[in-house]
């Protein structure tokens, strides 16, 4: 017999599979969501973690691990200038397309609710 939890999970999984994967495995925290939105709106930004944290209005300790995870998942890129790590949005076209689709999907309230659900579940 299906429980209400199963029903909720099915309902919340009802989105494009690529976007579902993106939310579950890449933008799986609220800070990452903020960062992805920032880099989508300002796509040619390249800067240090300190400055990116300032642009996002957050502290460096909170932003740095999230940025590094976005690098690991291929959403962001990192390069070193005189050993200073500089972050920017990936130049990979397919990943940029997913980011674009995610931000467009976020304009829909129902999608946002589902994304928030997955992020909160992932944080447990």
């Amino acid at each position: 017999m299906a429980t209400s939890d199963d029903f909720t999970a099915r309902l919340m999984n009802d989105m494009d599979p690529d976007l579902l994967d993106f939310v579950k495995t890449k933008v799986n925290t609220f800070i990452k969501w903020d960062l992805v939105r920032f880099f989508h709106e300002n796509p040619n930004t390249a800067d240090t973690v300190e400055n990116i944290a300032r642009y996002a209005g957050r502290n460096v300790t909170a932003v740095e691990p999230e940025l590094n995870e976005l690098v690991e998942s291929g959403v962001m890129e990192i390069r070193h200038l005189d050993e200073i790590p500089v972050y920017s949005l990936t130049t990979d076209e397919s990943m940029r397309r997913i980011v674009e689709e995610f931000i467009r999907a976020c304009e829909d309230r129902h999608f946002r609710v589902k994304a928030v659900y997955h992020i909160i579940r992932g944080m447990r």
Partner: peptide, 12 residues
């Protein structure tokens, strides 16, 4: 339209 900081822009 590129945004960066003066230190990164200079090093770049």
């Amino acid at each position: 339209v590129i945004m960066t900081s003066p230190e990164v822009g200079r090093l770049d």
